[in-house]
Nucleic acid binder design. Structure first.
Lengths: 346, 346
DNA sequence: CCGAACGATGGGAGCGCTCCCATTCGCATT
DNA sequence: AATGCGAATGGGAGCGCTCCCATCGTTCGG
């Protein structure tokens, strides 16, 4: 195969000449070949093959106004982002789905408030056809940015705001946080536990709130001394566990709003010589393989299909873009199911 | 601020008209304003502001042949990729550096051998100015692809092959794996340990081999019964530890080639009631915050600045692209230093 | 056997930008 | 005030592609 000399890539013109057809016909063949007679299609295909023709993306974008790329915006001020595999897994699902539709993934990582300017400029610049975003706090400027830029966006996780009147409904993909939490607490109750504590996530994240709601769904009159707030990190889980033990040394079960906090809590219990699950049963949330299986004892937890959620986000966005073109309605948001995975901690 | 009606974005032409100058002059101002007199510069700037002008990227790319984007290729057959924060951190460093140079990050995740075709097509398509890649195995097809596509590439981690005669030297950024390993083993020896075992990584990764070399540098006549092979995962670390204990119940220290394996090994030691660090001291490698601080006891380990390595990779690539344009030589590869972080496990 | 109707093909404009080159301008010099 | 020169500016071509529309060739019904 010949080395590509920079700047010498063959053009459609060259392909057309070689195949003995017009540029227009060559273009038709390259784009699917509808309405071109078989022998010509073959000739053009052969020419493409021989010349190693690859369409110039910039030229195509210039006229079609479609970029074939989607931005993935990861905006999260905390360092947490990347020490927890959550985003990575979702990203992977997204990547798979986009690749299957020949769409590129442009990654935008927001490192600080000043970065939003950069992101806004980029999204407004028409570099991408749509965007995928995560983990929004109530006052996140991103939704305003994408709306103003006119970039269709699908969110990962239920946003904390709802669309204003007349605005297109916000599209998102989320796990059934509330249902999963309910299942976890119900399971602990089924085990005969009576003083079930809850280690929650930051109240400005809807996933944390939804899980708390699920907890309350089962424990109708929730005892506030059994509820502690964490920040979805190992450390914060440990701290919350210490607090809880101080307030309620009699607790016999803990439901933590994610695996990382559960692992921190387990560490504290171990340090104090409290047997898990004999004295205190523990259930987490997420089922991150690198965490849930590695704890001591291995963690019973609520599994959500993170990669699947990523894939779904991409699918939703792509389908929406398609429908925009055909004039149909954008598809609805999706809630994916969760399942309880039994291991040794409860 | 006016909502952007799709397809109605102002063009340079409009800016020029509004400022009362030619398109050429407007273009000059937008691209830095060299050689344009101050009053005109101001007029154009104002017009840009008023019209909310954002240059059309596709049109610019079409003529300049520069995309302002860089591909990050993550090719790793194992599932491991995303359950270990290594890539994520490096990605973050890359992202920061690229953002600082207004360069976009296109993420290409290779999911299987069939994917290489897709990647090859993409890279050959002139969608990006350069590429960053990781974690190459000896028979990885990627180097051949990037070379054929004429895409300048910087690797993360020392590649296992070297450039052929007449070829441009391979550029990479790597931590001082060998030096770090040396420091770890030396430290264990300083602690008075005499039977220091080694849990290594897969032999087809240069980082694993370099660390083994460092181990051997200190323990000149290495006892093969003290060396076990893992796969950089928690599970494999646990397995290797079991093996070692069976072969050498008398070992008094372990150096694991990464933190994940060290954490698996610690688990096994704990299960067997072997005190760490009293009976067996443990040192890891990487200093991943989500792992090294969370183990029991917290892990003494060799720190490498992963994010910094990512940043360096991007810088190296961008500088190389720049030099290609000016005709200068591409910069050399870089080895970044490692440091030993003392915690409780040794 | 001829004309209408339809499907296949080609010509050409134009997407928004950069950059070459010709032109014009400002200014210093004589 | 005329001349020259370099710097500033504008005109225009062209990057590679798609898509509109005119043209051409076919096929079918009458």
């Amino acid at each position: 195969m010949p080395e590509q000399h920079p700047g010498s890539r063959p053009t459609l013109e060259a392909v057309a000449a070689r195949a003995g057809v017009s540029r227009a016909t060559a273009s038709r063949v390259v784009n699917g070949g509808d309405g071109v007679r078989k022998p010509l299609v073959d000739k053009v295909r052969r020419a493409v093959e021989e010349l190693q023709y690859i369409p110039n993306h910039a030229a195509r974008t210039l006229v079609t106004r479609r970029t074939g790329a989607v931005a993935v915006v990861i905006a999260e001020p905390e360092i947490r982002i990347f020490s927890d595999p959550f985003f990575s897994q979702q990203l992977r699902g997204i990547s798979k789905e986009l690749a299957a539709h020949d769409t590129q993934l442009v990654l935008l990582i927001v490192e600080g408030p000043a970065d939003f300017d950069r992101i806004a400029r980029y999204l407004s610049g028409g570099h991408v056809d749509g965007a995928l975003a995560f983990s929004l706090h109530t006052d996140d400027p991103l939704p305003a940015i994408t709306r103003r830029a006119g970039v269709p966006t699908v969110y990962g996780g239920r946003p904390s705001w709802t669309a204003g009147p007349g605005e297109q409904a916000v599209q998102y993909v989320d796990a059934d946080n509330r249902g999963g939490a309910r299942a976890a607490v119900q399971y602990l109750r089924g085990l005969g536990r009576e003083r079930i504590a809850y280690i929650g996530g930051p109240p400005d994240q809807t996933s944390a709130m939804d899980r708390l709601d699920g907890y309350r769904d089962i424990l109708l009159e929730t005892d506030p001394t059994l509820v502690a707030e964490g920040a979805f990190t190992v450390e914060s889980g440990a701290r919350a566990m210490s607090e809880l033990l101080e307030r309620r040394p009699d607790l016999d079960a803990v439901f933590a709003a994610n695996d990382l906090m559960a692992s921190g809590a387990l560490r504290v219990l171990r340090e104090r010589g409290i047997a898990v699950p004999e004295q205190v049963a523990m259930v987490g949330f997420d089922d991150m393989d690198s965490v849930a299986e590695a704890t001591d004892p291995p963690l019973t937890t609520v599994r959500q299909d993170i990669e699947g959620m990523g894939r779904l986000m991409a699918r939703l966005l792509l389908r929406g873009l398609d429908r925009d073109r055909t004039g149909a309605d954008r598809p609805d948001s999706v809630i994916t199911p969760t399942t309880l995975v039994r291991r040794a901690s409860a």
